[in-house]
Structures are given as structure tokens and as C-alpha cells.
Nucleic acid binder design. Sequence first.
RNA 1: GCGCCGGUAGCUCAGUUGGUUAGAGCGUACGACUGAUAAUCGUAAGGUCGGAGGUUCAAAUCCUCCUCGGCGCACCA
Length: 959
Amino acid sequence: MADDQRSKNDYKDTLFLPATDFPMRGGLPKKEPQILKRWEEMGLYKLLREQSKGREPYVLHDGPPYANGHLHMGTALNKTIKDIIVRTHQMMGYDANYVPGWDCHGLPIEWKVEEQFRGKGRKKGDVPPSEFRTECRKYAAKWIDIQKAEFKRLGVVGDWDHPYQTMDFATEAAIVKEFLTFAEKGLVYRGSKPIMWSPVEQTALAEAEIEYHDHQSTTIWVKFPFKDAPPGLEGADIVIWTTTPWTIPANRAVCYGPGLSYGLYEVESVREDLDFAPFAKPGDRLILADKLAEEVFAAAFVARYKRLGDVSPSQLEGAKLRHPLEGHANSYDFDVPMLPGDHVTDDAGTGFVHTAPSHGQEDYFAWLGAGLPLDAIPYTVGPDGAYTDEAPGFEGMKVFRTEGKKAGEEGDANPEVIKALTAKGSLLARGRLIHSYPHSWRSKAPVLFRNTPQWFIRVGTGEGSLRETALKAIDETTFYPPSGRNRLRGMVEQRPDWLVSRQRAWGVPIALFVDKDGEPLVDADVNARIVAAITEKGADAWFDTPDAEFLGDKYDPADFEKVTDILDVWFDSGCTHAFTLEARDDLTWPADLYMEGSDQHRGWFQSSLLESCGTRGRAPYKAIFTHGFVMDDKGRKMSKSLGNTMLPDEVTNKFGADILRIWVASSDVQEDIRVGDEILGSAVDAYRKLRNTLRYLLAALDGYTEDEAVDFGDMPDLERYVLHRLQEVDAKMQASFRAYNFKAAWRALSEFVIQDLSAFYFDVRKDCLYCDAPSSMKRRATRTVMATLLDAVTRLLAPICPFTAEEVYDHFPAGLGEKKASVHLLAFASVPETYRDEALAERWAKLRGIRRVITGAIEEKRNEKTLGASLEAAAGIHIEGDLAELAKGVNWAEIAITSQARLGETPGASDAFRLGEQPGISVVIEKAEGNKCGRCWRVLPEVPEEGALCGRCKEAVEA
RNA sequence: GCGCCGGUAGCUCAGUUGGUUAGAGCGUACGACUGAUAAUCGUAAGGUCGGAGGUUCAAAUCCUCCUCGGCGCACCA
């Protein structure tokens, strides 16, 4: 026994066992930062650009993330996909330059900075705007630095030293210039729109700045007489109900529901058990929704009433009413049209909706939808919540108090309006209601919808409109997936004009002067001075520079008003193509691709489209790719409250960026994708398998040089088959990369590596590799193929796992492959088309089918405990039909890793092993006869005694 | 509520113009090896293709409804 042991070890030294210092385990969390550092030091990005000078450009234009907060899985997904796209195109031979960018302006940063100031005991109103903006700028810059480091950690390659930032002075100026181009084209106009307004803080509020609290409102039922009553409705009044009496002076229409059932009612008697006289009088004729009549009469203290007949909505069509305040302060003597509206229901109220287009979204749209003019909408309430002179008779009265301890409480407006209505006899009833009402989350005071002047970009409709240009541009764009086209198209078809003004501080100014008629001044010289000033000093220049300096000698500042609103941040990001793609020499316009989450159909894809179509007549992109959102492992949205969140940082720290990237590459990113421990676990498993296979290749190729290489024509069938498969996989992967179908590429790669290489080719060739003499043609052919595999697979892996590919490349045998400073400076390998041999592939597919029967037969013996290693076996194979011819001349012992094999013998009777899926093949496994070769472990009759050498090994050892 | 997208084994994905018993890899179980060894190899068990109707000789695939989930729906990036 001791002797056997020794001789075994002796022969072990004569084997050519794999050797490499490439570690089995990646240790990615530690190793990746080191590799990153090296790339940084060698200036990889710069080397890439220098090397690809003159190549056809491929431009993926980065949609800017918001410069606030750490990365989440969604941003990591986004940047990883982009990086894979950029890297694959670079390796396919393009100059794929990637310039990342950031969106810096906007409300979320304002909030954070306000918070900072409040922390120091300063209110926003106390901080000079320029100081406030400086702080916003600092805040954004801080997060850009943090995010930049986080993006780099994911392995994203790009011009991180020169990203674009929407807050750069030159960029702010460029955005202003773009906006002024719209103005020059006559596409900018001042309109009007009701927005949430806090009179206490005198600011517009976003939906997210609103919270809802119970609020007690005075409700009123108001009668509107007909101007010319439709036949049969003479003397009847339309009744509305409202919780905001103060909006009555702004009333301009009454909406009815075209699908509701209405009736004409008459009051017969009122209650007499009261200590006051109800407003309603016997004989009053009222029109009400049938479902609500009873309720209304109860509120009006009507004791008895009768229904006189139906009122069909069609009778109301086109009817005109008189304002309930008609004659008050000698005013309100205009027609109040009745408008159909689907928003009108008979769930509450009267079935008629008091419509004040300056105080409600639905009112506003009902008004515009009826084709009524924007400029007929009054501004009845000012910034302080007080009536303006467009509310005659109520000027200066406040809806809510805005000063002192009682700020937020009801002002004079409601009581005064009610008084006036009562005087006119227009009031039918009044009451109180506690209901949920929007309040400012800062001051907790109630807010109101207030009509304010706003700036719009005209999208328009029909020939020559921006909408038409945009729709045409959508037709000319390629969408991945194709359904994106309809989605974007639908949104562009539906959307209203682009509201671009915001009453905020942190953003690019709407740098316009408005004349006395409300028209923007369009003058090239003035605009040039504005752009020059902002280029030099940023947005502050617009606010701080005296008007005269911009207006020059031609205009009198007294004739113009300076707009102090800022631009919608979507306009900023809509301009990235202009100030990045167009402005930089190392990029091209339009972009080959915009790649973002599907939410950007409504965001950046659209704002960029409109901006570019308005100024340049076409889309700034040739194609759009959309990805889905990151969900938890059950497909649910991630949220802090559910506790199912995961951060990219946790993934890279625990597993490494390459693992995160495999997760991305193996998922269907065009849909929502899931992430969780199990899912990342499979990415880790896949990684391990891949890494080990590459490690095996490195080890098998220890000491390999080109001198050893064998010509394709001189290779055994098996080698040619493997090269065929490599060619197939390479072609498939590159085609998939081109179509942005990474999961197909990943699948092709991992199935090839696992099934064809690890489980088949390597296993079969192990004996040859370890035991044959280095001079043997077969062994040389094997190593030639393995060298080709290592080179090609490493390159194919590089865009997906840039860190590991680099590590593998570092360990390449000295005599192998193209030498560059980094694997990322290489192109994909050119696997020759001549490797393709479909007939050979078909043959091997069948041979592998036969092999499966043999392995199955061996397994059966193992289960019977009569066999351990497959080398203990001798296979007796019988094949019927066409397959028999095919199997001839194949070294089955080698292919099936048995010691011996005989083909074509009479099938073993009933005990022969068969597989249902491989009909006509039967295999009998027996113990191989002979002795075990002490070196290669095959059991052969030629081996004189147990542990001695077989003929092949003897030669190899002696050579 | 409205618009768009999706639901195939525990997980990630294939399923070509509707056409044999719906596939692969991973994971799992069991086993082998101990010369890829915290690796490698083998075998096996897993699916009423979200549900219900319908069209058809034939449906994961086409139609309708339902259900579950996602994105968007104007001061929010």
C-alpha cells in the first residue's frame, strides 16, 4: 500500500496538471476598487478615446440623474445598462464615447436647502435669492461628487472628469438661449392657469408640498336665472352648490352632466317651525338632478315640493345664465354659459357645477375645452389671497387671513360674498361642511387654487405645429421595445401646451422682457446680452443686472417688465442634446440612442423631443431604449415602509459590481425586473461557474505560446466542433449586443461555457491535456482551441464583467493574445467564419445524444454500487438505424470518459440501458478488464500490473 | 378612474407565421470523483403556461372578460 501510494505520487509529477495563480474566489469587493484605481492611473478613458479616433462614432446620450441622494437600484440598473451598451459598441469597433451628466435645478434641492437654512434659524424669505442659489449650487455639487464615485464603483466608463451639469454657467446660458429660440419662433406665449397657491407663504405649491386636513367650510346653494329660458323652463333657476363661496365672483360658467337625469321642481311650502325665514319661497322653480333634489330641499328647509317634469340635458345645451351677482357694484352683467362636463356627477351637490376657471383645474379645462378664451378668465385673487379689482365690490377682501396668529383662518371674502348674494336674492341655502381640504405642509394654512399668469410653449395642432413635427419625429425613431412608440405617440398627441414657467428660485430664469401688452420682447441684441451675462455669472445675472444693461439704448426699461419665473426643469434636461451633443467636438448630434426607464416617455424622451423639434425640426435621437423598474423578489415596488429595499452599495460591498452587472445582463431589462437574495444568489453562482471555467482555461494554458498552435485544418473533429460552437456563440452574442438584447447574449455565453466547455469539452480532453506528451498533435490542438476560447470568451465577457475580464486578461499566459494595457482596449475577437461547419455540428449533436445514453448507463451502475469512476467502465454500445454509421470511427471511450468501449455489438438483452429520448441506442456497462494505469488511471489490458503504465503514458513519461 | 406594459418550473429566461409528450441554465435531491477540490462530473424530481370563457381539427401562442403587478396621468426628477 505504501508503495502504491508512492508510485502514484511519482507519476503525478509527470502529469501536465493545470497551474495558475488566478484565484478560485474573486474577492470582488476588495479587488474591484484596486482594478478601478489602475484604470484611473492608466487613464483608460483617455486611452480609449485616443485609440478610437477616426472610428465611426456611436453616441449613447446620458439622461441626467437628479443630483440629490445616493444611488438606488434603479439608477444602478440604468447606468449599468448604459455601460454595457457603450462597452459592447466600443468593442464592436465604434468610437463609443460616453459623457455622463446631472440634472441640478429643481424643487427637491430647494427643499433640502431651505431645510438647511431653517436649521440655522433663517427663513427662506430672509435669505437673499442669490445666496439661496449659491447654497443650492453647493448642495448639487456635493451630491454630484458622491454619485460620481458610486457610478464609477459600478464599473461605468465615461468622461467623468468632464460631465455635463445643468447648473454650469455656460449651460444655464445655453438653456436660456434655447428658450429664447422658442420665443424668436413665436412659440412662447403668456397664458393663465390655476395652481395651488399658499397665500400665507405667497408661493406656488407642488402636489408633494400639500397635505390634507379637515377644514370647516361654509357651503352655499346659489340660484342662477336663465338669460333666455329654454321653452318650458321659464322662471326656473339652475342651482349650484359650492364649498368656496369666495369663488362666486370668479364664476364664469355652470357645468351640467350630459348623462344625468334632471327635473324641474317647484317649492310648495317651507318649514314654519323655524325662528328665521328660509331663503326659499313657495313657488320657486328650481332645476336639480333628480337624485339630489330631496337633499337640496332639506338643506333649503323646504317642507313640500313637487316635480313638474323632466329636464333633459340636451335642453340645457347652449343655454345662457345670468350671474348671481348681476348688478353688484354695477358689474357681473355678463353671460354665464352652460357647459357639458363629464366631471359632473350626481353624488353630491345639485348636479350642476359652479365653474370658476381661475380656481379649479376641472373648471379651467371645462372652460378651455368649450373653446372659450383664455384671456376671459379673470384674476380675482392676488398673491396675498385678497380680491383684485377684477372682483368688483370685493376689492381687498381676503379669502384667508395671512398675517399674525390667525393666519390661515377665514377672512372677509366668504361672508361678504354671501351677504351680496343674499341681497340679490340669489341664495337658496347655506350650511357648513367639514371636509378634507389641501393645506401647505409648511405653514399648515389652507391653500387655494389661484389663476396666475404662466408661460407656455405652444405645442399646437395641425399643419406646421410643434406637435405635428414631434409626431413625425416619433415615426422616424426606432423604439426598443417597439411598444414605446405608441406610448410616446399617445402622450404627444394628448398633451396640452407645455407649461414652462415655475414660481421658484433654483433654476434657469425665463429671461424675457414683457411689454405693456404682455408680449415678450424678441430682439437678437438684447438676447445676446442676456446670454453673455449668464454665461459669465450664471442665472443670478438675470436677476441682479439692471434691466437697462440688457435692454440697451433701443428700449426704455419703464416700458418693460422683467419675468422673474424660472423654467420647468424638464426644459433644462430637454436641452441636454444642445449643450452636450451639439456643443462637444467629441460627440455627434443626433444621438444614436437615448436609454432610460419607461417613466421617461413622459419625461426626458418627450421634453427632449419637443425641445429639439421646436428648435431643430427633428428628434435629438435616432433610437429610444426603455428599461423597466426594479422590484423586490416578489415583484413589488421597493419602499422603505415595506422594508424591502436594497441598495447598489450593499450589493457591491457584499458581492461586487460584476455580480450586480450579471444580474442586469441576465434579466429582461425591458420589463420590470426583480432583485432579492435568491436572485443575486444565482448571479453569484453563475459568476463562480464562469470564473472557474476561465480559471481552468488559464491553468490548462500554463506556458502556452503561439509556437504550439495547430492549424484549423489539422485539428481533430472535436476541436473543430468546439470552434464551430465558439463561432456560433460569438455571432449570436454580437448580434444580441447590437440589438440591446443582453440577456440573450448572457444566456448564449453561460450555456456555452457550462454545457459545451465545462461539462463536455474540458471533461473529455482532460485525459489528453494531463497525460499526452506536450508534443502530441492532439494535445497541441486542444491547447490551441483553449487559447482561442480563452481569448474570445474573455473579450465577450468584458462588457458585462469588466473587472473579472481584466483580472483574467492579467493572467493570460505570456505567449497568448494581443497585448494591451487593458482588456477594454481590445475589440471582440474575430472568430473566423470558416470555423462554421453546420454538418459537423449536427453530427456532434447526435454523438452527444449517444453520449448521454452512456452516462445514463454508468449512472445506473453507480446507483447499484457496482461502479464508481467512469474510468472503471467498459461500454458496450449498440446503435440501430442511420445513427450507427455516424457513430463509427468515434473513440467512444474518449468521448464518454470510460476506459474501454465497443461499438456495434449485439445489444444486451433486456438489461441493456436505454433512454426514451434516444431511441435505437442501448448500452451495456461492464467493469473494464485489465489493470489501472498508475498515471492516467485508465483500466487497460495492456497495463501489465495494477499501477504500472499504459503504452501512451510510458511514451509520454519517457519523452 | 383613464392610457400603456406585463404575468411560462423555487429563481432567471427560451418558446419562431397557433401544429408531436412546453424547453434550457441555475437552485434542490441523490450519487460519483478527490489530478479544476469551499471545485468538477452524472442522474432525477419540479409546470392545470395568472384565471374564466370563446375562435379552431389544433391555443402558452388569436379574441373577450376578470385578476394580480408595474409605469404615466401638468410646479415631479
